[in-house]
Design a protein around this nucleic acid. Structure first.
Lengths: 202, 202
DNA sequence: TGTCTTTTGACAGTAGCTCTCATTTGATGC
DNA sequence: GCATCAAATGAGAGCTACTGTCAAAAGACA
């Protein structure tokens, strides 16, 4: 049997769980946008999703996590690792970014953008997001090391990965500040600068 | 009259406030190290510092802040801005880092290191630290822009600042992982790499 | 249908944090 | 010194995120 994507919904139990999880997350996001993050209590979310508060915490360890859980992250890493081996690390990064973000339909990317706006405007969430980014740095560093055939604790590799993440964050912030939706374009330009050795003439 | 450093303790009130603040922070740090961060309650800290819990929250908005408040941060920025104008941005960064960290006596830097270890081991604190780093990026970006005579939203400037911060964080993490105390040395090497255009050959 | 396992809800409890109000304590003019 | 005012403090009530326990409900499987 061949199911197109999310392979095998399996039992009723699993499907119900997935639905509950999605319901909680959706209602949470909606309420946060409508009334603000702090002003929305877990109890309200639970009620909206028609579960008890206890159940809420069985699905999400913290209120923050309903917003922070990023479905794209693991997909991005996987895509990076699957880029053709003859590509340079930087070209592979570029390829992975495009592969993922160009595949989102307009509804998905609109929701994703709403989520990002929320994360950036709530200090609490922003802080945890950055911690995730730092975690991503380790993963990226390992992947880069593998790709260029060096050790993960190689200093050049670490510095390179660090600059890459720093550049991406800076480009992302720039796109937000400019009010632009085209963060992929910003990423591209930033990657090109890194390719050129991060020049900076007065 | 010449007071050596912290100019004019002024009134009794001010001095008492400063003492209370320091007491809270010191006892908090001590208790965190002794019993762990989560296991230490605000009530315990308040009791140790001989103030009421209400007073604790008048001095620090959150429990986290007792650890996170970094006295070196504003000093670093100031030092960067005061570096001789003929230096390149990168040389100015190097100069500022050395100016500050080389001036710490052994007790100060030991305490600072204990604080850093704590911050890095508690996810909650680490997350907020990173948010501070992101805030620092904006300040750095503005300072760099001024230094090279460009606009703060200049893309090259942003990318450069981003890569610098990313590199410093990566170098810092590397020093921690290696168990080295010489993070200044790591910073230096990382800065040199940036100077060379962040090369990475396979 | 009956049994076993997972999921759920009710409830109680802890701790971070806010707010209010009365009391104390340092600053200041006389 | 003393009276007056502003700032600092403590006591206490209250909200909410989060944890842990236990019994009831619902799906899996025979």
């Amino acid at each position: 049997m061949t199911t197109s994507r999310d392979d095998r919904p399996a039992g009723l139990r699993e499907r119900k769980k997935a639905r509950t999880r999605a319901a909680i997350q959706d209602h949470a996001l909606r309420l946060f946008i409508e009334q603000g993050y702090a002003a929305t209590t877990v109890e309200q979310i639970a009620e909206a999703a028609e579960v008890s508060p206890s159940t809420f915490f069985r699905y999400f360890p913290t209120k923050e996590e309903t917003v922070l859980y990023d479905r794209l992250d693991p997909v991005l890493i996987e895509s990076f690792l699957n880029q053709p081996p003859e590509l340079s690390p930087l070209a592979a990064v570029r390829g992975a970014l495009h592969a993922i973000f160009d595949s989102l339909d307009s509804e998905e990317s609109e929701l994703e953008r709403a989520r990002q706006r929320l994360v950036f405007s709530v200090p609490e969430l922003r802080a945890r997001l950055l911690d995730q980014v730092a975690g991503g740095l380790t993963m990226l560093n390992d992947a880069v090391a593998k790709r260029v055939g060096r050790e993960p604790d190689d200093f050049d590799v670490r510095v390179w990965s660090g600059s890459l993440i720093g550049i991406l964050v800076a480009a992302y912030l720039a796109s937000i500040e400019d009010g632009s939706d085209d963060f992929i374009g910003y990423f591209d330009r930033a990657l090109t600068r890194l390719e050129e050795g991060v020049p900076l003439q007065p």
